[in-house]
Simulated scan of single mutants.
Amino acid sequence: MPRFLRYLLVGLAVLLATTGTAQAERTGLACIGAMLGEYLLPGVGYALLGEYDKAVIFGGLRWAALSKYASFARSPNYLKDPKDIYKTEQITVDGKERQKMDIYLSRETFYGKAYASMYGNLTFATIYDLYDGCGSKSETYKLMAAPFRIDHFWAEPTFWAPVVYAGVVPLGSDNVTYHVDTNLSRQEMINLSFVQYQLVGIGEEMLFRGVIQRSLYNGFSGFLSKKAARWTSLVTASAIFGAAHSGQGFSANSGVAFGAGMYLGWVYNPEVGQFDLIEPIAIHAWWDTILVNRRLRESQFVARKSGETARNPLAARTYPLFGFTYRF
C-alpha cells in the first residue's frame, strides 16, 4: 500500500474513532474507525477506544508476528511461490496409485510463512473483537484459550469424534519428503507449528463462525424464519469457508473445507438462538495441530541443497544419519 494512502487511512480512522468516542457511547463510526486503524497500525485502534490492555496484548503480538515475518521474507532464501515449495506426482505402490509429495523449505521460508499465518489469525481475532462490542468484549481473552477449556467440552462427542479421528486416520506420510535446510530441525518445526495451528483454529473460527456466520444469521433473520436463517447462514458461511481454501500443500481443498465448515458451523449454532464458539475453536485447533504434528513426525526429512526448490530439484543420493536423512 502506498505510504500516502496509508497515512490518509490512518488519519480517517483517527477522525472516525475520536468522533464516536467523544459521545456518550461508542457509535458505529467509532468502531469502523477503530477497526480500520487497528488493521493498518496494530494497537492504534484499541488505544483510540481506551482499550489499552488489548492495544498492548493484541497489537503487540501482531507487531511481533509481522516484524518476524518481514525479517524472514526479505531474505533471498525465502520462497514465496507455492510452486517452489510443493511438488506432487503420482506413483504406484503395490499396484495402487499413490500421491508422492516433496516439500522444499528453507529456514526463512518455514519461519516466514509460520509468522505470516500467526499475524493473519491474530488479525482475524481482532476483527472479531471489534466487530461486535467495539473492543469491549471480555470474552475474547477466554476464547483465545478455548482449545484448553477442557471443562467446556470434555463430555461432548462432537469434540472427541473428529479429534480422535485426526489422531488415527492414515495420512500416507511415508510418501511425503521434506527437503529442509540443515539449520532447520524437525523438532523446531513441530514446536512452532503447534503455536501456528492453535492460532489457525482460534482465528479462523472467530472470523468464519463468530463474524461471518453470525452476521449472516442476523441478516437472514430479518426476512426469514429463525430456523431458515440458521440453515441458510450455516450453508453460506461454509461455502465462503470452502472458497477460502485452495488445497495447496496440505491445506484442505474447497470441497473438504465446505464439509468441515458445515460441521463446525453446526457445532457453533446447534439450535436456533444458541451460539458457542469455544467448542468449534477447540475442534479446529486440535484437528489441525494433531494432523500437522503427525505428518512432521512420520514423514521423511532430507537436507535441502542450496538453491534447491520444487521447480529446481537437485539430484542426489540420501544417507540416513542419526535419525535424519542428509543428502550429498
Rank of each mutant, 00 (worst) to 15 (best):
F4G: 03
G20L: 02
M35V: 09
M35F: 06
M35S: 14
E38I: 09
Y46K: 09
Y46P: 00
L48R: 03
L49T: 04
E51L: 09
A55E: 00
I57H: 09
G60I: 11
R62Y: 05
A64T: 14
A65V: 12
A73F: 03
K83A: 15
D84Y: 01
E89Y: 02
K96N: 06
K100V: 03
L105P: 00
R107W: 00
A125P: 07
A125H: 08
Y131A: 14
G133H: 13
P147T: 00
H152Y: 08
W154S: 13
G167V: 07
G172D: 02
S173M: 11
H179P: 07
Q187Y: 12
E188D: 03
V195R: 04
Y197Q: 03
G201H: 01
G201V: 10
L207D: 04
G210N: 11
R230A: 14
A244V: 06
S246K: 10
G249V: 04
F250C: 11
S251D: 15
G259D: 01
D276T: 06
A282P: 07
D288E: 13
R294H: 14
R297I: 03
F301L: 01
V302K: 03
T309H: 01
R311D: 12
N312D: 12
A315G: 07
G323P: 05
T325A: 04
